[in-house]
Design a protein around this nucleic acid. Structure first.
Length: 475
RNA sequence: CGGGGAGUAGCGCAGUCCGGUUAGCGCGCCUGCUUUGGGAGCAGGAGGCCGCGGGUUCGAAUCCCGCCUCCCCGACCA
C-alpha cells in the first residue's frame, strides 16, 4: 500500500477523497453517486447507530420499519413537500415485467407513507403521542455527489412523532435537536452551533426546522442534523385527526428528525489529518491495536506471549494484535495511522524485559512508555483524554474562525476563505437570502439559539434586525 | 444539466496526436532466501473484454458515433 494522501493545504476536496478511500471506508459503485460502505466505514456507522439508538430509546422512542416504496400520489398530497422532493425522486415505473398502474417513488424521506399509516393508528388523544424512529435507506437523485456527504442512496434514521398539541410537538422537536447536539459533541467530538433554519432553508413541508451546524477544517459549514416541527401540515394532507378530551376532532401535530451517514463525512473532515483518518475513540470500531516487534522466532513467541498475558480477560472487541508476519513494524504503523485507530501499542523484546509497552496516540503521535501491569486502565484513560482533546481542538478551531462582521463588502471579501460569520441579515425577506447566495455562494446556516440580544442594520438592506445569524459557505 | 479533466493488471501511470510484431513501467500479489523499534533487499513468477456498445479498416488501446462512471467548478440538496 503506497499511500499518498493529498495534503489538505493543496486540495482539500482531494484530501477528503484520499482519506475515505485509503482508510478503506468506502468505494465507488457502478451506479452514479452510490457507494459501497466497506467494513471499516460501516463499523463507524454501527457505532453511531448503537449510541444514538440508545439515546432515542432513553427519550421514549421505539423503532419500527416502513416500506421503501411510496405511491406517487402520496408525495403529491403536501404541496411544499412535493415541490421540494419531486425533482430528486427515483421512480419505479415497471415491475414484474409490466408497467405499474401508479409509479412508485423510492422514498426520499418517509413522512408521507408514515402519515398515511398514522391515520389508521390515531383515533383519540389517548393514542398520542406516537414516538417512532426508523433506521432506513433513502434515495435522493442529487446532481453532484460526494462520498458520505451526499450520495444518491444513503443510510439514516428518521424519527416521526405525532402529538396532541403544538406545544408537545415543539418540545419534542427541541428535545431531539438537543439529543443530536449532545451526540455530535460527546461522540463525534464535533462542536456544533444549534439553532433554527430560516424559512428559506427549512424542510419542505415543515413549519420550522431546527439544526446543528458543524464547521469543517476548511471553514465550510456542514448541516449535521435537523429536527422539524411539521405543524399540522401532514395531518391535514393525510387527514389525521383525533378526538380530544374536549370532544372536539383536531388535527395531529407532527415532528420529524434525522441524521445520516453524512455524519461520517463530518467526522472525517473535523478530525482527520494529512496522514489519514482520525476516529474519535468513542466511535472507533477498533480502539487499540498491538504491533509486536521481533527479529527471530523466539522473540516473536516471547512478544506474542506477553501480549496474550497482558490482554488476558480483555474485551476482544477492544483490541487487535497485528501479528501478520509479512509486514515489518514500520509498515504496520503507517497502515493503522491511515485507518485512524486511536491508540497503537508497540511492544518488542526491550519492552518485555522492562515490563513496559510504548503507546502512541493517533491524533498527537505522542509516544508514552507505560507499565504492562496497569495497561488497560492507562489505555482507557488515554482514550478518554483523546476524545476530550479532539473535541477541544475542534471547538477552538471553530471559535477561532467565527467572525463578527457588519459590512457586506467585508463579508463578500472574507466569506470565500471559510468560517462562520455572525451578521445582521433580514431573514424575514427571502430576497435578501437569495441575493446573498447569488453574490457569495454562501447561505444563512442558522439562527442560533444562543445569541446576544443585539440590534443592528441588515448588512444588505440596512433594515433594523434583532440578533445576528450565522452565514457561511457550506457542503 | 453547463464548463474543465480523466477511465489501460488490485493501485498509480506511460503508450493514443501520427492505426501495424507478443500492450509496457512502478507499487502491490505469489515462491524462496535474507530481513524486522517508522512504509525492507535480492532472485524467480502470476496477473489485461485497454470503461461499455456500435462503426471505419486487411488490421483499432490508438480514428469516428453513442453511452456509462469518477474528479474539479457552477445551479439542486442531508
Amino acid at each position: 500500500m503506497a499511500t499518498t494522501i493529498t495534503k489538505r493545504s493543496e486540495d482539500y476536496s482531494q484530501w477528503y477523497i484520499d482519506v475515505v478511500l485509503q482508510a478503506d471506508l468506502a468505494e465507488y459503485s457502478p451506479v452514479k453517486g452510490c457507494m459501497v460502505i466497506k467494513p471499516n466505514g460501516y463499523g463507524i456507522w454501527e457505532n453511531i447507530q448503537r449510541n444514538l439508538d440508545r439515546m432515542f430509546k432513553e427519550t421514549g422512542h421505539v423503532n419500527a420499519y416502513f416500506p421503501m416504496f411510496i405511491p406517487e400520489s402520496f408525495l403529491k398530497k403536501e404541496a411544499e413537500h412535493v415541490e421540494g422532493f419531486a425533482p430528486e425522486c427515483a421512480m419505479v415505473t415497471h415491475a414484474g415485467g409490466k408497467q405499474l398502474e401508479e409509479p412508485l417513488a423510492i422514498r426520499p424521506t418517509s413522512e408521507t407513507i408514515i402519515w398515511s399509516t398514522y391515520r389508521n393508528w390515531i383515533k383519540t388523544w389517548r393514542d398520542l403521542p406516537i414516538l417512532i424512529n426508523q433506521w432506513a435507506n433513502v434515495c435522493r437523485w442529487e446532481m453532484r455527489t460526494r462520498l458520505f456527504l451526499r450520495t444518491t442512496e444513503f443510510l439514516w434514521q428518521e424519527g416521526h412523532t405525532a402529538h396532541a398539541t403544538w406545544e408537545d410537538a415543539e418540545e419534542e422537536a427541541m428535545r431531539m435537536i438537543r439529543v443530536y447536539q449532545r451526540f455530535a459533541e460527546e461522540f463525534l467530538a464535533m462542536p456544533v452551533v444549534v439553532g433554527r433554519k430560516t424559512n428559506r432553508e427549512k424542510f419542505a413541508g415543515a413549519d420550522h426546522t431546527y439544526c446543528i451546524e458543524a464547521m469543517m477544517q476548511d471553514g465550510k459549514a456542514l448541516q449535521a442534523g435537523t429536527s422539524h416541527h411539521l405543524g399540522q401540515n401532514f395531518a391535514k394532507a393525510f387527514d389525521v385527526k383525533f378526538q380530544d378530551r374536549d370532544m372536539q376532532l383536531k388535527y395531529v401535530y407532527a415532528t420529524s428528525w434525522g441524521v445520516s451517514t453524512r455524519l461520517i463525512g463530518g467526522m472525517i473532515m473535523t478530525h482527520s489529518d494529512d496522514d489519514g483518518l482520525v476516529i474519535p475513540p468513542r466511535l472507533a470500531p477498533l480502539p487499540v491495536v498491538f504491533v509486536p516487534i521481533y527479529r527471530k522466532d523466539d522473540e516473536r513467541e516471547l512478544v506474542l506471549n506477553r501480549i496474550a498475558s497482558i490482554t488476558d480477560g480483555w474485551d476482544p472487541l477492544f483490541y487487535k494484535v497485528d501479528d501478520r508476519d509479512q509486514y515489518r513494524p514500520g509498515y504496520k504503523f503507517a497502515e493503522w495511522e491511515v485507518k485512524g485507530v486511536p491508540l497503537r501499542v508497540e511492544i518488542g523484546p526491550r519492552d518485555v524485559a522492562q515490563n513496559t509497552v510504548v503507546v502512541v496516540r493517533r491524533d498527537t503521535k505522542e509516544k508514552t512508555t507505560c507499565s504492562c501491569d496497569t495497561l488497560l486502565d492507562t489505555l482507557k484513560t488515554m482514550l478518554s483524554d483523546m476524545q476530550q482533546d479532539l473535541f477541544n481542538a475542534a471547538r477552538e478551531r471553530m471559535n477561532a474562525r467565527t467572525y463578527t462582521v457588519d459590512s457586506y463588502d467585508e463579508y463578500r471579501e472574507r466569506v470565500e476563505e471559510g468560517g462562520f460569520f455572525r451578521v445582521f441579515l433580514d431573514v424575514d425577506n427571502p430576497e435578501v437570502e437569495a441575493k446573498l447566495q447569488e453574490d457569495t455562494r454562501s447561505t444563512v446556516r442558522c439562527i442560533p439559539f444562543d445569541r446576544p440580544d443585539e440590534e443592528g442594520p441588515c448588512m444588505i438592506t440596512g433594515k433594523p434586525c434583532r440578533g445576528r445569524v450565522i452565514a457561511s459557505q457550506s457542503y
